[in-house]
């Protein structure tokens, strides 16, 4: 547990400016792989082999990115990634809003047992369950289909989403819902017209988590699909690394950056909500 960073922080806690040392480590550690990859993605194929190294490319050329977009089937892989991410996020968030609301607002029999059913799988890691899932999907005859991926992606996203949303619903004041109920509104009307509008920050956070899971997912798509048309961007990135023997670094890195950018942009837009929601302890 003890390392140099830890001891330094220990000795300097409440000291003047020592916290900048871990922060500088944090900065370099976080952005070094990214900056280096971005820099190389603008270089010529031979330039990455030159010494001495330079962070700034000799000339910024977008050739590598154009080659990524011209890559056979690139748009198909992009479509698969977007389609899976959006479909599973909408499904998972819808399902989780209903369940989260029930857990936050109703006292019912088996509530605790059902809660355990939802919450324990939250910590089951995806990669470890691919084998029985594969045999089940093969048994249903839906290998190599969107359906198999949508079902498994949604199922893995629901537990965390339900947990975060239930925690959020619990702290919103009940007065509005009660007023609506007295006016004769049905539960789904209350959820749609009252709960969802005031819970948008939590719903956005949950959506970003779920988008992130689906967009970056790899073990499932690797195990459950076989045809080229079903590949997602991370899958193709993995194949690129294999088939090209990692020789054409600038192109592989441009592809890498292209897979990172969409989520990064979303994150920059909604960063405050996401970070604050994690910091409020909603995610454990």
């Amino acid at each position: 547990m003890e390392g140099t960073g830890f001891i330094k922080t220990t000795q300097s806690w409440m000291g003047k400016r020592w916290h900048w040392i871990p922060l500088i480590i944090l900065l370099v550690w976080t952005i070094l792989p990214l900056v280096w990859a971005v820099s190389a993605s603008f270089k010529e194929a031979t330039e990455v082999y030159q010494t001495p190294v330079s962070l700034i490319p000799e000339s910024f050329n977008f050739d590598n990115y154009i080659r990524v977009f011209d890559y056979p089937n690139f748009w198909r892989y992009l479509f698969n990634s977007v389609f899976l991410a959006v479909t599973t996020t909408v499904l998972a968030v819808a399902v989780s809003i209903l369940a989260g609301y029930a857990f936050a607002r109703y006292a019912f029999r088996f509530r605790h047992i059902l809660l355990i059913f939802i919450l324990v799988p939250r910590i089951i890691p995806r990669a470890s369950i691919i084998v029985p899932l594969f045999t089940g999907i093969a048994f249903l005859g839906i290998l190599d289909s969107y359906l198999a991926l949508v079902l498994t992606y949604t199922a893995t996203a629901v537990p965390l989403a339900t947990w975060i949303l239930a925690g959020f619903f619990k702290v919103i004041p009940k007065a509005l819902e009660e007023a609506a109920a007295i006016d004769g509104a049905k539960p789904w009307q209350i959820i749609w017209h009252v709960v969802i509008p005031i819970s948008l920050p939590a719903i956005i956070t949950v959506s970003i988590f779920s988008l992130r899971e689906a967009w970056n997912e790899f073990p499932f798509v690797l195990a459950f699909t076989s045809s080229q048309e079903m590949r997602t961007l991370p899958y193709q990135l993995f194949m690129l690394k294999d088939s090209m023997g990692m020789q054409d670094w600038p192109m592989v890195l441009a592809f890498t950056i292209v897979t990172i950018l969409p989520l990064l942009i979303l994150y920059i837009i909604f960063e405050k909500k996401v970070v604050n929601n994690i910091l409020s302890g909603a995610v454990k």
Partner: peptide, 16 residues
């Protein structure tokens, strides 16, 4: 309200 979530989680993860 809870049913769809249980269906997904138990059907896929519980099954696994």
């Amino acid at each position: 309200l809870v049913f769809p979530a249980i269906l997904f989680v138990v059907g896929v993860l519980g099954y696994a």
